[in-house]
Design a protein around this nucleic acid. Structure first.
Lengths: 333, 333
DNA sequence: AACCGCTATGTTAGCGTTTGCAGGCTGGGG
DNA sequence: CCCCAGCCTGCAAACGCTAACATAGCGGTT
């Protein structure tokens, strides 16, 4: 039925061990023999059985990505970067989503990963989930994208610095009353959000502006939330002249709210987002852009390094953000 | 080190065979024994080795999605649907992208799938790729999303009907000169595009309108292409009063072109897109919406059916499109 | 000439399950 | 009281590969 390494060995007149070594490019094989085996394998259309190989060799040749979402821009984009690296390295990529509510206890994700994959790449907010803790306890090879954790390789942006850039831009334009659209109301703290908020506050204070908490409203990191947030801001007796949204999607919602009020970002109010979402250009939204696909790619490479040297020390890489100025931000009228 | 079925067997005082049967819920196991084994396995924190199970059992418990892209909206969204179904069924999901240029010969994708997964779900334009042909030849379990192919289970929308809806809407609004922004210029034919074009033409003819090919320009299914396309249309001596874009992303580009010309969709020109992209609402774009996540979900279920009954007859399911009317479409001025 | 080290190859014992077959036990019918 | 059918369980042979160990051959040293 299916043809096995034994068929190739017989056909090539060597032992299975030699076939195995030859095909995997291991040393100590006569180049002539190797080539011959390659040819035979090719002729027979032999493909190695990963399953058997895994069982015997101990390596699965697969890694998993766990992520809170899969279709949302950030995750899909990062995943694209990961996929490219893994495909080039000929490693199977499993995807697995895990709700992003903070888990009191590991979901089955942790158990599912065991003996299924060689390592796990953790995307986004999941970095401090119980699943990851459980994985860490077992010394499971890990790499993080977008969050940090002691002793684990990670790649992320400098959220504080990013927020500084965005805020400073607004300050430089001459704005004095700057609002902020942030995350979830009473929800679990989410490090990037806190960092961005910190960068924001820092710049305001450095500029000698008062930090008015009434101008900081939750936007839940969704478009709808951003819309609500902007409505809230506009309803105030002294609305801000500029708003920094902690994500582009919230900024989009904010733009719609403005439109509903007959206003326009960049005209009646300056708006800056955060992410570098791929529609930001189209929406003419000024934004602090992060290289999401690169994050995924670098995270994937980090994971490969960990797999290659499990005892190596974890690296924490930081990728730069850039401010993309577009029409949505302008000086106060 | 890792604990195996033997550990459980010893601890429970039964044979490995019984453990295997008990844990998999097979018949012919005393309920008491089964429960006991369950408990022991649980206590030992035993997780079955998928690898060994696969090798012995012949099934891999994994499926692959092959797709031309991963981060583009359509694919990411469909993938989300697929992932949900597979997660619920406890099946590993591998993702693998394949360039969407038509392949003269199978890429390595076909070989990679063999003995790695039980079945493959093919997303989008890849339905008639050489990889899929190769897979079909081997009677590999397959399911298609978004394309059709004889003898293979598939789920898709009725592109002709969808285009009819969008076009009819414009006709009903009173437009007589209706442009179309289509696909790739001289590129390989792409069934959904042709179907949409056919539906468009059909409605124009039924309405007694002339089908002016100068009003049909390529947009390459990208935002930039859509922008160019709209520029081309506007530059004509007698520009259309309405435009049907064969994808939302092209429609977005078209909107930007309008904006650059000081015009607005729904005011100076009616614009209808196709997809139901998640930003369409925000952009106030009228669009023919397709249930992409459902497509993915249904495709996944189809694949599961094929796996359960490999000799079953392929089903061709069609999911409905809906017209979402928003501000971008209005009667001619 | 005996020996040594090195490389190329073969042998074989697993890797952790599943599964067909066989055996043992129980209970009911003859 | 025997027999047989039916359950439950155990035994052991795969599944297809890897890797540690063994072996053979070959040239070069001493």
């Amino acid at each position: 039925m299916t043809i096995t390494i034994r068929d190739v060995a017989r056909e090539a007149g060597v032992s299975t061990a030699t076939v195995s070594r030859a095909l995997r490019g291991l040393g100590n094989v006569d180049p002539v023999t190797r080539e011959h085996i390659r040819r035979v394998a090719d002729r027979l259309d032999y493909v190695i059985s990963p399953t058997a190989s895994r069982l015997a060799g101990g390596r699965t040749g697969a890694v998993a990505v766990i992520s809170p979402h899969i279709s949302k821009w950030y995750f899909a984009t990062a995943l694209a970067g990961v996929e490219r690296v893994m495909r080039e390295s000929d490693i199977d990529l499993l995807v697995h989503t895990v709700g992003d509510a903070p888990h009191p206890q590991p979901t089955l994700a942790e158990r599912r990963m065991r003996s299924r994959v060689d390592g796990v790449l953790v995307l986004g907010t999941l970095g401090d989930s119980a699943d990851v803790s459980a994985l860490m306890e077992r010394m499971f090879p890990l790499a993080l994208v977008g969050t940090r954790r002691d002793g684990v390789s990670s790649v992320a942006i400098d959220d504080v610095e990013g927020a500084r850039m965005g805020t400073q831009h607004l300050v430089n334009l001459g704005h004095r009353r700057i609002g902020l659209i942030g995350g979830r109301p009473g929800n679990a703290p989410f490090q990037p959000e806190e960092d961005r908020r910190a960068g924001f506050t820092e710049v305001l204070e450095a500029a000698g502006l008062c930090v008015d908490l009434r101008l900081q409203v939750p936007g839940n990191f969704t478009t709808a939330g951003g819309e609500d947030a902007m409505n809230t801001l506009l309803a105030q007796s002294a609305p801000p002249t500029a708003v920094f949204a902690l994500s582009d999607e919230m900024a989009y919602g904010a733009m719609r709210a403005l439109r509903r009020h007959g206003m326009r970002a960049g005209h009646d109010l300056a708006l800056v987002g955060f992410d570098g979402h791929d529609m930001a250009d189209l929406m003419e939204l000024t934004t602090v852009s992060q290289p999401v696909e690169d994050l995924g790619e670098q995270g994937a490479r980090n994971l490969l390094s960990v797999l290659a040297d499990p005892d190596g020390v974890g690296v924490e890489r930081t990728l730069p953000t850039t401010l993309q100025v577009r029409a949505s931000s302008a000086p106060p009228r």
